[in-house]
């Protein structure tokens, strides 16, 4: 890695620390010992080309890949041997790339499905303030919503749970610019409210508007860490990694 993460935030204990993380799908070795950390209140992105291992990293943190090794410590608890339901109950919430809206549930049921695991989650009214479209379509089948509305629902439902760390996998993928802007505003507001966010993004321009730091991934490795403030100086390097 071109720049080490240690000490990047004044030696504070990280909210999430990933060390030597390996992951496999069947026989396929996808992550090769990745290291990174996220501090409380930060928005951190994982950048990289298709197949770099960003989504697998998210799934490995949640414990939903075939096999994983290494260390994932969340708020001081080692999670590598825990099943995904217990990881979620530590305060991690995952919004998957494919959004994971359930077709047999209406919008209201989708929204209230994840159990509240700690106090301090957003109320349903606050979620409707963030995403007014959802309120109007409460009784609609979840998968009948537009792509943008489904993304709002997928993000909205994890805000209720009281989880303080959100893993958002490509929340802007395939969405209209106006919806991307709305999701950007939401992420900034969540950061103001103290949420910690790990974001997988292919849309580098979007990531630059919301994140504090960026980790660049390539072939299952973390190859660079860039602070948002350094983006201008290191733009050529980032373009080279991302193939922009």
């Amino acid at each position: 890695m071109r720049e080490q993460t240690n000490g990047a935030d004044g030696g504070r204990t990280p909210f999430l620390r990933v060390q030597g993380l390996n992951a496999w799908y069947g026989e396929s070795h996808v992550l090769h010992g990745i290291d990174f950390e996220v501090h409380e209140g930060e928005v951190v992105t994982l950048l990289g080309r298709n197949g770099a291992g960003k989504t697998t990293t998210m799934k490995s943190i949640m414990g939903i890949v075939g096999r994983r090794q290494g260390s994932v410590v969340f708020k001081g608890t080692e999670t590598i041997g825990l099943p995904s339901n217990r990881i979620a109950r530590l305060g991690l919430a995952f919004c998957p790339e494919e959004r994971g809206i359930f077709s047999s549930l209406n919008v209201e049921e989708n929204l209230t499905l994840p159990p509240v695991i700690a106090p301090g989650g957003l109320s349903v009214e606050t979620i409707f303030e963030l995403f007014p479209n959802l309120k109007e379509r409460l009784k609609s089948q979840g998968t009948k919503l537009s792509g943008g509305e489904q993304q709002m629902l997928a993000i909205g439902r994890i805000l209720r749970t009281g989880a303080r760390m959100l893993l958002l996998d490509e929340p802007t993928e395939g969405l209209a610019p106006v919806i991307v802007q709305q999701i950007g505003n939401t992420i900034r507001r969540l950061k103001q409210e103290g949420f910690t966010i790990l974001l997988v993004e292919q849309n580098f321009r979007f990531a630059a508007t919301v994140a504090d730091r960026h980790y660049v991934m390539e072939d299952g490795h973390v190859v660079a860490m860039v602070r948002n403030a350094e983006l201008d100086q290191r733009m050529d390097e980032i373009h080279e990694y991302l193939g922009v």
């Binding site: 939903i64 994971g100 047999s104």
Partner: peptide, 14 residues
């Protein structure tokens, strides 16, 4: 009903 569709995601919700 949700677990019938996607048990992995439902488990990852806790």
């Amino acid at each position: 009903r949700a677990a019938t569709e996607n048990p992995t995601l439902v488990q990852a919700m806790g």
